[in-house]
Amino acid sequence: MPGGLVARPRAFAVIVAAFAAAITGAVGLAAPAWTPVAAGGALLAAGFAVMAPCELQMATVLATVVGRSAAGVGGVRATALRFTVGYLAYYVPVAIVIGALAHLAGNAARALAAAGGGLMLTLGLATLGAGGPAWLKRCRGPLYLLRSGRASFRKPLRAGVAFGQYCSTCCGPYAFALAVFAGAGRHAWLGAAIVGAYALLMALPFLVPALVVPARSSALSEHLATVRPTLDHSAGLSLVAIGALVIPISLISGMAGKW
């Protein structure tokens, strides 16, 4: 974890935003029709950075749920499947809402995407303890939902739903920006399909190992617990970066009128 960036997340956000604005702005001025390529390239390239910490957090939660509720290889598989079903069950309506929102917002969708970027940035700063309203600081990941009793480690389906709630708050704005970039303004189903695919892509990397090598999955929870603070910092930093990226590219692409 790059300690300097965690210590100065605001400066990091400014650098990322300036870089994204320079690239998108240059393309927007030189070849406005190609602005979506610059914007999409930045968003897709950032996908790994925004998804990886969440993926690891999801693995942490799943490993703990598996450790608490599953017995035997079959139990691990069933628990992982139930957790995934819960996660996707929450994300499907979210995908439909996001798709419809991108469609209904029309030209305002880019401004909404930029506002989503602002939300991500604020969440990221709050996670790193560098600002944001006090109530956001309590929403540090799926722990909040689990500790507050809204979900239980012993109920995989509900734990999956809880993780979906957490994930959609952070990654939802990113998924919305992706949907707008891919042309969700023209077809509502396209936006829903993109966000749904995003959720499925998030679920696959932790579900497949649990199905293929269940014995190892069940032994992970202790190992993962030791790296949780690193994961929280990584998630906060990636939220700051993506938020800072989404704001200028949404606004500049919007001004270029081609996104």
Binding site: L44, G47, F48, M51, A52, E55, L56, A59, A182, A197, L201, M202, L204, P205, F206, V208, P209, L220, H223, L224, T226, V227
Partner: peptide
């Protein structure tokens, strides 16, 4: 979309694998 649908989960999956393999050693 196909390209991202294949490459992103592969990279994420193996990123997770790399991370988990490193954690016990630490």
């Amino acid at each position: 979309a196909v390209m991202m649908a294949v490459e992103m989960p592969l990279a994420l999956g193996f990123g997770l694998w790399v991370f988990l393999r490193a954690a016990p050693r630490e």
